[in-house]
C-alpha cells in the first residue's frame, strides 16, 4: 500500500472522528462562505454608492455664457470630478414631466418654466474625500451664477463608514473562522497521529524518514479539508440556488445580492490548503 492507500485506510479506520471533523470543517467553511458573501456584497454596495456620488449646482436663470463656461472649467479641473453635464431648464422640465406622467394635469395651465437649469457633477469613485467635496461645493457657491449646491456627502459618508466598519468586522470574523477551521484540522490530525503513535514509532525504527511518516497524515488532513470544502460548497450551492432564488422574488434586498459562483470552487481549495497546513502543524518535528 502506497501513501495514498494507507491514507485512505487510515481515514476509513477512524471514520467517525473523520466524519465529525469533515462535518465541522464543512460547517466552518460554510459560515466562511456566508461571511465572504456579506463582505463581498458590502464591497459591492460601497462601490456602487461611490459611483453614484454626485453633486448638483442650480444655476441662476440669468447666468451669462462666459460665467457658465468659467464655472464648468473650474469644476472640470477639480481632481475629484469625473464628469459634468449641463441640464437646461427645458430638459429639467421634460425630465420632471416624464417622471410624473400620471399626474400630467398638474402641469396644465403652467406657463413658463419654474425649474432652474443645473450642472450635474459625477464625482470619481473613491477619490472624492469628504473634504474635497466640501471644498468644491464652497468654491462653486462663491461663483457668479450659482444659486445653490446640493450634495449628499454627509449621508453617504455615514453609510460608507458603517459599511467599512461592517467590512472590517466581517474580515476579522473571516480570519477567526479560518483559524477555527485550521484548529479542527490540526486537532483531528493530532488525534489520528496520537492514536497511531505505536505505528509511527515502528516506522521510525524501521528507518522511515520524517516525510515518509508524515505523508499519509498530510494526505489525510488534505482529504478532510477538501471533503469539508465540498460539503460547504454543496450547502452553498443549495443556498444560492434554492434559497436566494425563492427569496429574491419575495424580498427586494436579496434581488441585488451578488452571488459569485467561483466562491463555491474556492471552498475545496481553501479546505485543501487549511487541511494540509493544519496537518503539517499537528505533526511538527518527528523524533527519532
Amino acid at each position: 500500500m502506497s501513501h495514498p492507500g494507507s491514507a485512505i485506510a487510515g481515514i476509513w479506520k477512524e471514520k467517525w472522528i473523520n466524519l465529525l471533523s469533515v462535518f465541522s470543517i464543512g460547517v466552518g467553511l460554510f459560515i466562511l462562505l456566508i461571511s465572504m458573501l456579506i463582505v463581498y456584497n458590502l464591497n459591492f454596495f460601497a462601490s456602487k454608492l461611490q459611483g453614484r456620488f454626485s453633486m448638483t449646482v442650480y444655476l441662476d436663470d440669468g447666468i451669462s455664457a462666459p460665467d457658465l463656461a468659467r464655472m464648468q472649467g473650474a469644476i472640470r479641473s477639480n481632481p475629484a470630478v469625473g464628469s459634468v453635464s449641463y441640464i437646461s431648464k427645458a430638459e429639467a422640465l421634460a425630465e420632471l414631466k416624464k417622471s410624473m406622467k400620471d399626474s400630467a394635469y398638474l402641469f396644465e395651465g403652467l406657463d413658463g418654466n419654474p425649474l432652474p437649469a443645473s450642472l450635474d457633477i459625477r464625482l470619481k469613485r473613491g477619490d472624492a474625500t469628504d473634504a474635497m467635496v466640501r471644498g468644491l461645493a464652497a468654491q462653486i457657491k462663491a461663483m457668479r451664477g450659482a444659486v445653490d449646491v446640493e450634495y449628499g456627502a454627509k449621508f453617504l459618508d455615514t453609510i460608507e463608514s458603517v459599511i467599512s466598519g461592517a467590512r472590517s468586522a466581517g474580515l476579522a470574523f473571516l480570519a477567526a473562522l479560518l483559524g477555527g477551521v485550521l484548529f479542527v484540522c490540526y486537532s483531528t490530525v493530532k488525534i489520528l497521529f496520537y492514536r497511531r503513535r505505536d505505528e509511527v514509532e515502528t516506522l521510525g525504527l524501521l528507518g522511515a524518514t520524517a516525510w515518509f511518516i508524515r505523508a499519509p497524515f498530510l494526505i489525510e488532513g488534505s482529504v478532510l479539508g477538501v471533503a469539508g470544502g465540498l460539503l460547504a460548497s454543496a450547502a452553498g450551492y443549495a443556498v444560492f440556488d434554492v434559497f436566494l432564488a425563492g427569496f429574491a422574488g419575495a424580498l427586494p434586498v436579496f434581488r441585488y445580492m451578488q452571488t459569485p459562483v467561483y466562491f463555491l470552487g474556492l471552498l475545496p481549495l481553501a479546505g485543501l490548503f487549511i487541511g494540509f497546513s493544519g496537518a503539517l502543524m499537528a505533526l511538527g518535528r518527528i523524533k527519532f
Binding site: 494507507s6 515502528t202 525504527l205 528507518g207 527519532f288
Partner: peptide, 22 residues
C-alpha cells in the same frame, strides 16, 4: 542520519511490532 542507519539494519524485534492494520 538515524533513518539511514536504521535502513542499513534489519531488526527482528522481540515484541514483533507488526502493524495491525496492514
Amino acid at each position: 542520519h538515524v533513518p539511514g542507519l536504521r535502513r542499513s539494519i534489519g531488526v527482528v524485534f522481540q515484541d514483533f511490532r507488526l502493524l495491525s492494520g496492514k
